[in-house]
Nucleic acid binder design. Structure first.
Lengths: 163, 163
DNA sequence: ACCTACCGGTTGACGTGTCAATGATGCTAA
DNA sequence: TTAGCATCATTGACACGTCAACCGGTAGGT
């Protein structure tokens, strides 16, 4: 592990004003970008990014179906969150739930034709929005840098995981 | 306006698989970082980042007070959001609201001693967490790159503003 | 004076997220 | 066998955000 010690650079414990400013810019901008994409998706397709995430996973699953638990870990959600979200999606007819034949107490989540159709209509505009708001905003070097930054931050989060 | 045309690089409208992968990494990681900071703050001080934002603004205001509307635009929140949040903070004794003497229909938001104290206790651990999870995770070059990426994304968001 | 239009702020409805508690079911060890 | 115990999923309570409607007051135009 080539891990940077927390006490490097003279043992300062707090960020400098400059570092803090960059952090705030970075954080607020990525958050704003996320909500802009969210509202674009909402406007184009009446789906939330949560809906989209679920529908994407189901679309790619064999039989367009998945066990609830597998779905949760596939998209990295807590089961409780998924359960609430599936309830809302089921009310809107985007998915269906049924008892799982193989696993006791297991619930199978099925993509309905309504859901598949909604997902199909949403995909192209959503990808185009990602291109317009992210890819086209950055130079190729910056995109690569973004990838490296994400990897470094992720490594740090994993290293300091608090379970 | 030195604006990149959306149709550059051969007029592709959709991101490549590579670009999309980076986007997802980038987005999910920054989101995860945000929620980690949120839960650290919550654990250290029983404040949410929303609470912290409001308390920070009030702490820095003359008289530790601000008109609701000015506060909203200072921290970039919608007024409705602020109103709901102030209601919750008032219930917990972190702030007080009173009629504004100068502006008719204006509401003055005041920092209580409870609020000031909570903010004081929260600040150091919060800044330390930002350092641990963001600053220390990146090289100085990467921090600079993060700043440039944020600026570029922000410029794009502003250029395509949809009001 | 009156009608309208805006302005500052609040409210209600609803989607979303977390946490902790609850059912329901199978596995395992005394 | 039965007393735990883990697993799969749901539920309820609550915090947070957005949207649209609302309310009370001031300002302009006729």
């Amino acid at each position: 592990m080539t891990e940077t010690t927390p006490a490097r650079r003279g043992g300062r414990q707090l960020p400098t004003a400059q570092e803090l400013r960059i952090w705030r810019d970075f954080f607020e901008t990525t958050a704003a970008l996320g909500s802009r994409l969210e509202s674009r998706l909402q406007g184009d397709s009446a789906l939330s990014t949560g809906d989209y995430t679920v529908l994407l996973a189901l679309s790619e699953a064999p039989e367009q179906a998945m066990r609830s638990s597998a779905l949760a870990s596939h998209i990295g959600w807590e089961r409780s969150r998924l359960s609430h979200h599936l309830g809302r999606m089921e009310r809107r007819g985007l998915i269906r739930r049924q008892e799982c034949a193989t696993v006791p107490r297991g619930a199978e989540v099925l993509l309905t034709t309504t859901g598949a159709e909604a997902f199909g209509k949403a995909t192209f505009p959503h990808l185009r929005a990602i291109r317009e708001l992210f890819v086209d905003a950055l130079t190729p070097d910056q995109i690569a840098a973004a990838g490296e930054i994400a990897a470094a931050l992720r490594a740090r989060l994993d290293a300091l995981r608090e379970d």
